[in-house]
Design a protein around this nucleic acid. Structure first.
Lengths: 193, 193
DNA sequence: GTCTATATCTCGATAGAC
DNA sequence: GTCTATCGAGATATAGAC
């Protein structure tokens, strides 16, 4: 393993922010988990916690986008792809004791009205996800406007199901929400031919 | 106005937790906004921040449930009711500068893996919401199992749309998610007759 | 019940040796 | 680049007068 100190700090931050949120995670906890020193953190991120937060949001957001795109590309059709995304999320949640869901959701809610630079970072990530989903649905023959609505509906249902599933500690919400989205996509496909 | 000190503390906490989250809100900020003193807070809540958090989650959760039930009851049919709930949420979000969405969502994500008593409180609130929604859909003639799935889908879509709308500062996610849920309910109704 | 003062701890951030 | 010591501010919580 040849991970740099900088990478370990970003990785540890992403994991902790995802589970405990931004305000709930201290810089000392981050460097401890990253097996780094506080001086190194400020060396790589002179802007402190906020700069680190921005980079973590963008990095984790892109990684998660690729993960979901992987599920969609691997599936034989988009409806199956949607079901696979929700099933995969449920599987991860179960395996991590309902800890690892969306990497930026908790942070996004925390900073939405308290930290404008971080809020913008989360908005850009969500915007990129919506565009990615829209492209996927368009490729399946769905017309532009509806493709975008379905992409937003998919992401919203997934994020909301994460909240319910993490709080209630069962995957029923992910299953119900996934089925609702899958059927909406199915309807849109059969309507377009 | 004859609000008691205790009520003002609970009300101020609810507003601040909703906007800034649990870890992001200090007890001194709460008593300042409540125009109360720290001693009063510990007089009414000897269990400190955690006891206050539990009470706020349950109180705000019940209040919000009644708000949504009000929209559903006032509507001429359930599909219109669903649309009204999302439209009402969008209106509130716009009016409050995208600050006031779900009263317990941010807290629920923060505590899901860090504070078991608070996690249980959020789980109970979500459970109560799901039961309320299930009853509403059953009254419209939808069979039990599907009514529950739709209730979960509705809450998940609403919660997820809140995340997107607050981060992106526009109500498009609430509109897209609301339409997806409304059509799912419409389909379930016409299938049952 | 209300209010003030304070104890103890942890936070983010900085300085400077190496 | 790494590491340690420490700063000032803010956190939760407590004690005790009134």
């Amino acid at each position: 393993m040849t991970t740099t100190t900088r990478d370990r700090i970003v990785g540890a931050s992403a994991e902790l922010f995802r589970r405990q949120g931004y305000t709930g995670t201290g810089l000392k906890q981050i460097v401890a988990q990253a097996e780094a020193q506080l001086g190194s953190l400020y060396h790589f991120f002179p802007g402190g916690k906020e700069q680190l937060g921005q980079e973590v949001i963008r990095w984790a957001g892109l990684l998660y986008q690729r993960l979901v795109e992987g599920f969609m590309i691997a599936a034989p059709d988009v409806v199956t792809g949607v079901r696979d995304v929700f099933a995969g999320a449920a599987e991860t949640l179960r395996q991590t004791g309902y800890a690892d869901a969306c990497p930026i959701e908790t942070v996004a809610l925390e900073v939405a009205t308290t930290n404008e630079p971080l809020r913008r970072a989360t908005a850009e990530v969500f915007g990129s996800w919506i565009e990615s989903g829209t492209r996927g649905f368009r490729r399946a023959g769905i017309r532009s406007h509806e493709a975008r609505s379905l992409a937003i509906g998919l992401i919203a249902a997934l994020e909301g199901a994460f909240v319910l599933s993490r709080a209630m500690r069962n995957t029923e919400p992910l299953e119900a929400a996934g089925e609702m989205v899958a059927q909406a996509v199915e309807r849109a496909i059969s309507a377009t031919g």
